[in-house]
Simulated scan of single mutants.
Amino acid sequence: MKAFIFDLNGTMIHDMEYHTRAWHSLFNEDLGGNFTWEEVKPQMYGKNSEVLVRMFGPDRFTEAEMDRLSFEKERRYQEEFRPHLQLLPGLTDFLKQAHDLGIPMAIGSAAIPFNIDFVLDNLNIRHYFKAIVSADDVVLSKPHPETFLKAATNLGVPPADCIVFEDVPKGAEAAQNAGMKAVVLTTTHEAFEFATFPNVLHFAADFTDSFMQTLL
């Protein structure tokens, strides 16, 4: 038995630039920050509230303010990314092949349901996934393994039999902490940034990489 667990942003779709752009404008234009692109990009992981705390400290915003800012950030992201929304090359066929082979699949993402629904429903791929774990479903974000462990539990598959698809070091670390192997999509980070994670099986630009077929 084996199962596939997919991160979403940067792994299934190439959209991290648009998330960074939305945060960058919100931080600087709305919240009076003076952050460079290089300062914002490494913070693109975890829940939106965690991003806000990392950038502005724990006492700047109330929970209600963070909820409002989080929604506004996602609204801007979706508005700008919508014309470019598509799966990474080769992923459409990979999902169909895995589904036809009966390989259970899940999404394990720090995205909120609003963004996960945006992708799954606009691309009509929800039917491929037996489980979806979002930011709203966990207490602790990646690199804590809760997201991936919950996905494995929902699929009914032992963690050791799950392969995680990720694009960021914190995601690969979360997979390692969950006892799972990982395949890294190099959409947003380079291979050397994952040097400390022995659980990484392979690096690929997209799902047309021949290694993907060996997983099926």
Rank of each mutant, 00 (worst) to 15 (best):
R82C: 01
E65Y: 04
N48P: 12
F35T: 04
F35W: 11
T11E: 05
I13H: 14
G46A: 15
M66I: 00
M44R: 11
S25N: 13
P42L: 05
Q78D: 03
M16L: 11
G57N: 03
G33C: 10
F35Q: 07
K41P: 13
L69V: 12
V53P: 08
K73I: 05
T11G: 14
V40I: 13
S49H: 08
Y45C: 14
E39Y: 06
L31P: 05
P83W: 06
H14C: 11
N34Y: 11
W37L: 14
E74K: 01
P42G: 11
V40H: 04
P58S: 10
D59C: 12
F61T: 04
Y77F: 03
I13E: 06
F35Y: 14
E74Y: 00
F61E: 01
M55S: 09
G46W: 04
Q43W: 15
S70Q: 04
E80D: 12
K41S: 09
Q78Y: 02
M44H: 02
K73R: 12
E72N: 00
E29Y: 07
Y77E: 06
L52F: 07
F56L: 15
E63S: 11
R68W: 04
T11V: 00
V53D: 13
R21M: 03
K47A: 05
P42C: 14
R54C: 04
W23S: 01
F27S: 07
V51Y: 04
Q78M: 13
M16A: 05
Y45D: 13
E17C: 13
E80H: 05
R75N: 06
P83G: 04
M12G: 10
E50H: 14
E38K: 15
R54A: 06
Q78C: 13
R76K: 12
S49D: 15
A64E: 10
T36G: 14
G46S: 07
K47H: 02
H24R: 09
G32D: 04
E80C: 10
G57L: 01
F81N: 01
T11P: 01
E74A: 00
S70P: 03
Q43G: 14
P58L: 15
N34A: 10
H24T: 09
H14D: 09
M55E: 12
S49E: 15
R76A: 05
M12C: 11
M16T: 09
R68G: 04
V53H: 14
S49K: 09
T62W: 02
D15K: 00
S70N: 05
H14K: 08
E74N: 00
P83C: 07
M55T: 12
A64Q: 13
G57I: 04
T62L: 00
T36E: 11
V53W: 10
E39R: 04
E79A: 03
R21C: 02
R54Q: 06
M44G: 02
F61P: 02
F71H: 10
P83S: 12
E50M: 08
A22I: 03
P42W: 13
T20H: 07
M16R: 06
N48A: 09
G33F: 09
K73Y: 07
E29N: 12
S25R: 06
A22V: 07
K47W: 05
